[in-house]
């Protein structure tokens, strides 16, 4: 099939970007969306033009690198699917497809569709860790954790940190990401020692990075490729309340 693409092109972080029209031919419906872009880029290289820069790594839906907004939706039209797992059968022959970078002040564009998401790394550095004694690895099941808690913490831990929540949110808020990390660590005994400090510091870093505030629109949850629930946001609000009431600072 053939597609009309409208792709955001931007030379560098400081330059002005704009939407540029392309057509790509010979698209197979079994290709992934990234393979379709590979085909386009091959055409561009042959023509001596600058290929479209986009992030990707695992191409199997687990690394969270393949950030782009397709027809207004982060990772495209399929629910709970990353761009690399999106197949071209989701589109019709002759369709026009908008492809834009994740947009947020806290995710500055590096080039074309590639954005800098190191703000997420700094949120993790602010508190997304636990303290473990050095020495031999502890036996995996030495601390009993009830099944429901383990499952809920694991659900939160499946967040791949792709940033679709920020991209989808009208406020460019990072609450779903941050709350998933806080929930994952705060619910488990291993995370208990830093519990209050983690919550306060990660929220403070999130605000410092310039993400917007959450107004509970639920767009993040709807667009999350891993189905992370906004119950985590409510949980973080509780944790934050407790931490600021009982904390020394």
């Amino acid at each position: 099939m053939k597609l009309n693409l409208k792709i955001w092109r931007q030379k560098g972080p400081k330059s002005e970007g704009k939407i540029v029209d392309y057509t790509v031919d010979h698209v197979d419906e079994d290709m992934s969306f990234l393979e379709m872009l590979d085909v386009l880029n091959q055409d561009l290289i042959v023509k001596g033009e600058d290929p479209v820069a986009f992030d990707h790594d695992c191409r199997e839906g687990i690394c969270g690198m393949c950030s782009m907004v397709i027809n207004g939706r982060p990772h495209g039209p399929w629910e709970r699917t990353t761009t690399c797992q999106l197949h071209m059968r989701a589109f019709k022959d002759g369709e026009t497809v908008f492809i834009e970078p994740f947009r947020a002040n806290a995710f500055p564009v590096l080039k074309d569709l590639a954005v800098d998401r190191s703000s997420f790394d700094r949120i993790i550095q602010a508190g997304g860790y636990i303290s473990v004694n050095t020495g031999n690895a502890v036996d995996a099941n030495s601390i009993p954790i009830d099944k429901e808690t383990a499952d809920t913490a694991f659900d939160a831990a499946t967040c791949i940190g792709c940033g679709a929540c920020v991209a989808a949110c009208k406020n460019a808020s990072a609450m779903l990401f941050t709350s998933a990390k806080v929930a994952h660590l705060n619910m488990l005994p291993q995370g208990e020692p830093e519990r209050a400090k983690r919550t306060v510091q990660m929220v403070a870093q999130m605000d410092k990075e310039g993400f917007g505030a959450c107004t509970n629109t639920g767009a993040c949850e709807a667009e999350c490729p891993k189905g992370i629930s906004i119950t985590n946001i409510a949980r973080m609000n509780r944790e934050y309340f407790k931490a600021t009431i009982t904390g020394s600072k």
């Binding site: 907004v69 207004g72 939706r73 908008f98 989808a168 460019a172 310039g210």
Partner: peptide, 12 residues
């Protein structure tokens, strides 16, 4: 918090 706007709107 989002200075550059999307060309295609999000309705989720």
């Amino acid at each position: 918090a989002r200075k550059s706007r999307y060309a295609s709107g999000n309705k989720s």
